[in-house]
Write a protein that binds this DNA or RNA. Structure first.
Length: 971
RNA sequence: GGGUGAUUAGCUCAGUGGUAGAGCGCUUCGUUCACAUCGAAGAUGUCGGGAGUUCGAAUCUCUCAUCACCCA
């Protein structure tokens, strides 16, 4: 074997060998009927592997490899998501960069051809990256959420079930069941992509913003007495006003105001409720008047207590408008520009005025009205905002304040400075929450549009019930709370998108606006009647609608495939906390609605992978760790082991290069254990079943192996991946390499032929067990060593996972003896180091008393102890010679006669320190045992354990005291 | 404002009522025939503060503080 494992050279070669042998295929290595299936959370077809994917897929691969080795009929189903917005964006960018005609120029059909072409070329990127990580997905089944859609050339997902048909069928079924409807509602509108997006795709970010305060004059020059009181009811301000003061962060939306609302209990405005006020923008001669109404929504303690109601451009306002039958005037077009359609402003304002005075209206009539003044039409919303502010201020309708008002923020003049008492418009500078599109990064505009919705309330019941009853379990448990909270307050799900790349909605309209929902145009035509002219709804479905069907869709539903019968419901879903709502909850709802079955029995949620300081990785922060660079530098196994060790349930995930280095070193350690085995003829031993050796050392390590096998299984059973990793790390490094290998040297290199043979056989088995148990976490290095270390029937990936137990294999006598030996060696080493005995020097050891068991242990392990503790000889003495360092062991008192080298002071200090520690422990133990209530109420084994512990500590203390006394005599 | 969670060694974090742990880092020593990507030895803790329940609390309860995330 080479000196170290060459990951860069070996990984590709090993992966190809697995693939060529069909090791990942569904059912490969199955020895039982029991199935185990994981659906990969489909990465975006535009995606590149990031640390989150690396983490997430490592855990999936561990579970998959573990089950496959255990003989389950295993399927890890891979695939990609068509990612509507992101893909459309990528392709548009590509068209622009290569000087090709843009999307609109090409038209829908040609553009979609380009998208398919792009998908064929780049869509497989992430698959290749997952392979570098070692993911053992059944790639021949690679699925795609747009498979089977018109124009699909079937590149990269040749065997994918027809997802398109499944999606269309579900839409039609849900429509027919009344779960899907079309309606005009306020949705989040992305002005960049010109499409509706879901509220989950909106990021609310706090930005530095402004709050303007304006006066809305009362109609007809009316006035009222405005009275402000403090908490005790004392009047602090009383003045005659002819206006009501309104604050807003979006002045351009004032053009669409339908009312001003105040809280019903707000006495300040009671005199003017029901009157009209004037919106202070637009041409003076056509100024619109709107009613002052009461509603529970305004907070009397916030701002002026009065809120303008712009139903078409704000979610809270929309609710108020609906409650009070206030018209919702749409002000913007799809690009977020002020509307330029409709009649001249004068005419539109007149119409609106009639509605404000009580004329009945319909939604369509209101939507047709364009209340943007002629001079603002066509402007970008932010430019319009600037103009509106200027116009109002110029007219003197801005609320004024002193120039040193701190609310002005950075624009305020310092108190006492020149101009501090001047009056300026009150424009508060304050942080405000602003919605941004998570893909486009532009400010999202609430917009009143026609969209398709899933009436989620109607299908949420079974999804809630499934988790409440435990049919599906969410790990960590806190995820269940979050799940309930969201589902219990679920909103209608807007599923239409104004995009081209996606599943086009299977609905056709006739010329009268009636619609027909059917899987095909022919069927829609049949519904509409012959000769009726139909046009298809141009919108496509939200990508999450199709990925909501991922579990059944990838298995071939609606066809009754063998895979569907065998692997559905699937077993575990491993995904990020952040898509609990986006995806997990929706899969639950949809699978239950469509096939009346939960999609999986366990959901494992994990946190975002962050940098070593706990910061989110982002390009702008420059702290992004590229998993592929890590794989290049340290090997995939090191990254995988790090991810596994980080994976505490619910834990924060902080990735650092230091940790990765540490686990790369662990791989090297394992490698060198194998090299040692090779050099000692272990590779030549034929692999055996569980060995039943005679020598204590070998019996001991067999038992230790059984213990760690149980630990690993228990940890993986309960998704404590970190515990599995730590147990194996401690076993391989701390037990096998630190002790077993060292102890084996005298046996392997000694004269006793039987001992040598037995040790070789045991070591072979131990090495194999290490490889098997580590394989799910570190597949490459283990497979490589497996191949190098002997003739094998099967590759390690298909080796049988062991089932032996500690109860069968642990020999408690061997266990006790080896712990005694290890303890003795550690004590001697510690004493030597503290006495500054040269490391290489062999020294004599004496013993005053030693019981039978101790003597037997010594006799059996003399060679090991002498070698590892650097002992020259053991002599029985009556009393410790002067200047001897005492080593207390169970059943024996040893001494290192170091008169020449001994530093009495140092030795005294050493003993006193140890005694100090002992005294503390003894105090605690005695205190507890002296307490009658402890003896009464604590479980018997705890009391027993405490007693035994006390006895052992007391024995040790006595020996050390004796030693200390002898030392004092000497001094 | 609502919700969820966190606070344990210098750092990063495990630890669901019974002797406070790991990795990294640090100090000292060491090129003995698997491994310097290594070995040996060592130091380091009012388990965020306070109160309570209990024979016994890092762990359960309450409270305060600080921080993080999600949703408004």
């Amino acid at each position: 074997m080479e000196k170290t494992f060459n990951a860069a050279e070996a990984e590709g070669r090993i992966y190809r060998a697995w693939e060529e042998a069909g090791c990942f295929r569904a059912g490969a290595n199955a020895r039982s009927e029991e199935s185990f299936c994981i659906m990969i959370p489909p990465p975006n077809v535009t995606g590149a592997l990031h640390v989150g994917h690396a983490f997430n897929n490592t855990l999936q691969d561990i579970l998959i490899r573990w089950h496959r080795m255990r003989g389950f009929d295993t399927l890890w189903q891979p695939g990609q998501d068509h990612a509507g917005i992101a893909t459309q964006l990528q392709v548009e960018k590509m068209l622009a960069a290569t000087g090709q005609p843009g999307r609109r120029e090409l038209g829908r059909e040609k553009f979609l051809e380009k998208v398919w072409e792009w998908k064929g070329k780049y869509g497989g990127t992430i698959i290749e990256q997952l392979k570098r990580l070692g993911c053992s997905c059944d790639w021949e089944r690679n699925a795609f959420t747009m498979a089977g859609a018109p124009g699909d050339p079937r590149t990269g997902h040749e065997n994918s079930p027809n997802f398109h048909d499944a999606v269309i069928k579900v839409f039609v079924d849900m429509y027919n069941k009344g779960y899907i409807y079309r309606g005009k509602r306020l949705v989040n509108w992305d002005p960049h992509f010109e499409t509706a997006i879901s509220d989950l795709e909106v990021e609310n970010i706090e930005v530095q913003g402004h709050m303007w305060h304006f006066k809305y004059p009362l109609a007809g020059g009316e006035t009222y007495t405005y009275v402000e009181r403090d908490e005790d009811g004392n009047v602090i301000l009383e003045e005659e006003r002819d206006y009501i003061s309104i604050a807003t962060t979006r002045p351009e939306t004032m053009l669409g105001d339908g009312a001003v609302a105040v809280h019903p209990s707000d006495e300040r405005y009671a005199p003017i409720v029901g009157k009209l006020c004037e919106i202070p923008v637009g041409p003076k001669e056509h100024r619109r008047q709107i009613p002052i109404i009461t509603d529970e929504y305004p907070d009397p303690n916030f701002g002026s207590g009065a809120v303008k109601i712009t139903g078409a451009h704000d979610f809270n306002d929309y609710a108020v408008a609906r409650r009070n039958n206030i018209p919702c005037y749409r002000l913007m077009d799809t690009r977020g520009h002020m509307r330029a359609d409709g009649a001249p402003y004068a005419e539109e304002a007149r119409k609106a005025q009639e509605y404000a005075r009580g004329k009945p209206f319909t939604e369509a009539e209101i939507d047709a009205i364009n209340l943007v003044p002629d001079d603002l039409r066509g402007l970008d919303r932010f430019e319009a905002r600037k103009r509106v502010v200027e116009q109002i201020t110029a007219e003197g309708l801005a609320v004024m304040t002193r120039a040193d008002d701190p609310r002005l923020g950075p624009n305020a003049v310092k108190p006492g400075e020149e101009g501090a008492d001047a009056l300026v418009p009150l424009v508060e500078s304050k942080p405000i929450m602003q919605p941004f599109g998570d893909r486009s990064k532009v400010v999202i505009e609430p917009m009143l549009t026609d969209q398709w919705f899933v009436d989620a309330e109607k299908i949420v019941g079974p999804a809630l019930e499934a988790v409440r009853s435990g049919r599906t379990k969410i790990i960590p448990e806190s995820g269940e709370k979050t799940y309930y909270h969201w589902l219990e307050n679920i909103e209608p799900w807007c599923i239409s998108r104004q995009l081209w790349w996606g599943h086009q909605i299977p609905v056709w309209y006739d010329e009268d606006g009636n619609h027909y929902c059917a899987p095909t145009e022919q069927e829609a035509q049949a519904m509409a009647g012959e000769g009726v002219k139909l046009t298809r709804d141009p919108d496509v479905l939200d990508t999450w609608f199709s990925s909501g069907l991922w579990p059944i869709g990838t298995l071939g539903w609606p066809e009754d495939t063998p895979e569907l019968r065998r692997y559905f419901p699937t077993d575990v879903l491993i995904t990020g906390f952040d898509i609990l709502f986006f995806w997990v909850a929706r899969m639950m709802m949809m699978q239950l609605a469509v096939v009346n079955e939960v999609p999986f029995h366990t959901v494992y949620l994990h946190q975002l992978v962050r940098d070593e300081k706990g910061k989110k990785m982002s390009k702008t922060a420059g702290n992004v760790i590229d998993p592929l660079e890590i794989v290049d530098e340290f090997g995939a196994d090191a990254l995988r082991f790090t991810n596994t060790a980080m994976a505490a349930i619910g834990g924060v995930l902080k990735l650092s290069r230091e940790r990765i280095t540490g686990y790369r070193n662990f791989g090297t350690k394992l490698w060198n254990f194998a090299r040692f085995a090779e050099m000692n003829g272990v590779f030549e031993v034929e692999a055996h079943d569980i060995p039943r050796p005679q020598r204590t050392l070998n019996r001991w390590i067999v038992g230790e192996t059984a213990k760690v096998r149980e630990e690993v299984d228990a940890a993986l059973e309960s998704f404590r991946f970190n515990d599995a990793a730590h147990a194996l790390y401690a076993f391989v490094w701390g037990k096998v390499c630190d002790w077993y290998v060292e102890f084996s040297k005298p046996l392997l290199q000694g004269e006793d032929e039987a001992a040598r043979a037995e040790t070789r056989e045991t070591m072979k088995w131990v090495l194999d067990q290490c490889l098997i148990l580590l394989h799910p976490i570190m597949p490459f290095i283990t497979e490589e060593i497996w191949g190098l270390s002997g003739q094998r029937d099967k590759m390690l990936i298909h080796a049988d996972w062991p089932e032996y137990t500690a109860a069968d294999l642990v020999d408690s006598a061997a266990d006790h003896e080896m712990n005694w030996v290890i303890g003795l060696i550690e004590s001697i080493r510690s004493a030597r180091a503290q006495m500054h005995v040269p490391a290489g020097l062999y020294v004599p050891l004496v013993v005053t008393e030693i019981d039978e068991r101790g003597q037997a242990a010594w006799d059996r392990n003399e060679a090991l102890i002498k070698r590892l503790a650097r002992i020259e000889s053991l002599t029985r003495v009556e009393a410790m010679p002067k200047g001897t360092i005492t080593i207390a062991a169970e059943g024996a008192t040893f001494g290192l006669p170091l008169a020449d080298v001994i530093d009495i002071g140092a030795e005294k200090a050493r003993l006193e320190k140890t005694l100090g520690k002992l005294a503390k422990e003894l105090g605690g133990l005695r205190g507890r045992l002296k307490n009658p209530k402890f003896v009464e109420s604590a479980p018997e084994e705890v009391v027993e354990e405490t007693r035994a512990n006390l006895a052992a500590r007391e024995e040790e203390e006595a020996k050390l005291r004796e030693a200390l006394e002898r030392l004092s005599e000497l001094a």
